[in-house]
Write a protein that binds this DNA or RNA. Structure first.
Lengths: 327, 327
DNA sequence: GCCGTAGGATGAATCGTTTCATATTTTCCT
DNA sequence: AGGAAAATATGAAACGATTCATCCTACGGC
């Protein structure tokens, strides 16, 4: 080679610099810089057997939840010198399949996935070929895989405990469809809190077709039109809560004086709403980071015990559920 | 091999199936399925010379602008069977550098980047090694690279034309710092519109330390406290606009009756605000998709002429700048 | 002066595909 | 039937790094 050195030595300079004499090392480095040499990662990969990438498969990056998770993942990956391959499935099993196939061909170090269907054979196949898979926002089988999630039941409980504590007795849960695990669990948690309180609490349910602002607005219109609004509304997520807030305000009801509102997710905009929204916050970035950590642990450790990490959400109290401090 | 066939034939089945007899093809495919064989992409890559990935380098995916761009990029990449490698720079040139280095080692097909510094030598180096680079949301040198951007000057003009048309004459621009290209250009566009109108329009400027809700809220408080509010406020982005809206409403000023507001970006929550926000919308997903298209064109075409695509933003009129239709 | 040793450098084998020149078989035409 | 042409299949070379057994050299001890 140009520096009067064999390729083996160059490889050593790059990977185990302590093995090579300082003088040679410097000469090689100088030549590398001079020629603008860039190692070909495919060749390295082929020899070593695995790539320096990790796959992240989510429903949709445009969803702020996944966006933050992706940030967390990327941060850790970055720190470890790994690259992140981003895949959106849009809840389409065919897309998920084809993404997983591509990731398998690439021999990624591991896959972080929010699976559409936990029992998908393709995930099992991946793992059987030796690629660690970590599930997030979904529980897996503890004997074969790691997973990270946030306790939605606890989140629902926190919300209702807060409302009950503040004296509310006539409540309404707004959200849907209940086929979404999140909706069901948040509702379950809410009911748990009611039961545990022992108080005489009434809890209605108003289902929405989807967890978005429009759904919330329609629900809010119905609440206002009913003539007998509840004293507090717990919404399955912040978008719904914002919709409800908007409709109620528009109908002349005051929040929180007439109706208190608690949302879920603590999206950025929750704090910026017309009436800052009380909401249940999930440690989203941490979720992603932890998932990535578990993945790396699985590739590194010889004796790896799969872990199911469950984070606790946190209630962020703002004006929408308490008497406003301003004014 | 197991199917009684040479490796060369297997390769043909995978890559040029029309060359191989149907019978053989089926037998090979059956064996592949049976053995769960997965092609090793590193080896393929090594032979072919480039990978089936493309790098996307943004300031921060958590920023909704980049999130949508990423979606657009991913959609096209997906369609072409490519994977997207996501990199966040956080405006740190060192992070940008190290990401670009990694992408170079990976021999990505190309890089889509929102560069911190357009004149960074590393981008030039990448291109010189034969990796196409497309800039987005930033103009490049038309002789060496493609770029896609949205015309912020036009966006500013659209906003002000709308306000002038609606009879407003005492205006205020809220945003900052002016070192951000976006802020400066949106302001320039606004001034262009005023000049072009020939009307006697007054335009004040209130700078904010950052383009966020807090900055907007502070600005809104100052506007309310001044005693002589303008009849319309044009904000450099929606977050600022939401902050202003919140502060004005809180101070008892009615929007749009007392003060009209126009924002910029048309983020999801613009429509969901207490008073739905008039805003300038950028075709963000299309921006990403187009950038990816240009990149692929550059890798495909023999005679590639670099193009600078500039998209036109669109004014979305809602209640915050017109007399409300609902009541 | 000889030998053992340790620190450095070397180069061939290897990873798993793709590609291409060549070999083999089949088809078709006269 | 004979032979040219078309259709298939083959196998070896190549891609560019890593790895490891081997080799070289200098040095110290006896």
């Amino acid at each position: 080679m140009r520096a009067g050195v064999s390729v083996g030595t160059v490889s050593n300079v790059l990977n185990r610099p302590e093995l090579v004499a300082e003088q040679t090392r410097e000469r090689v480095n100088a030549t590398i810089a001079e020629l603008g040499f860039v190692r070909n990662d495919s060749a390295r990969q082929l020899r070593v057997g695995r790539s320096r990438t990790l796959g992240l498969v989510v429903l949709d990056v445009a969803n702020p939840f996944f966006t933050d998770v992706a940030r967390g993942v990327e941060d850790l990956a970055n720190q470890e010198g790994l690259a992140v391959i981003l895949c959106n499935t849009d809840e389409d099993p065919r897309k998920e399949s084809s993404h997983l196939d591509l990731l398998a061909e690439m021999r990624v170090q591991g896959v972080l996935i929010n699976p559409i269907d936990v029992s998908d054979g393709r995930i099992k196949a991946l793992r059987e070929r030796g690629t660690p898979v970590v599930l997030f926002d979904r529980m897996g089988d503890p004997t074969v895989e790691c997973s990270v999630a946030v306790d939605d039941v606890l989140g629902g409980r926190l919300a209702l405990e807060h409302l009950i504590e503040n004296g509310h007795r006539r409540m309404l849960f707004v959200g849907g469809p209940f086929t979404l695990r999140q909706v069901q669990e948040r509702y379950d948690g809410a009911m748990d809190a009611i039961e545990a309180s022992g108080a005489d609490v009434e809890m209605g349910v108003m289902t929405t077709p989807a967890l978005n602002v429009v759904g919330g607005r329609l629900a809010g219109d119905r609440i206002a039109a009913s003539g007998a609004p509840p004293s507090a509304v717990f919404c399955a997520n912040d978008l719904v809560a914002l919709g409800v807030l908007q409709a109620l305000t528009h109908a002349g009801l005051r929040v929180p004086a007439d109706v208190a509102i608690v949302g879920y997710d603590d999206i950025d905009f929750a704090a910026a709403a017309a009436v800052p929204l009380t909401s249940v916050r999930q440690p989203r970035q941490l979720l992603g980071r932890t998932a990535a950590e578990l993945l790396l642990a699985e590739t590194t450790e010889t004796e790896h015990a799969h872990r199911q990490v469950v984070f606790e959400p946190e209630l962020i109290v703002r004006d929408s559920s308490t008497l406003p401090t301003r004014t």
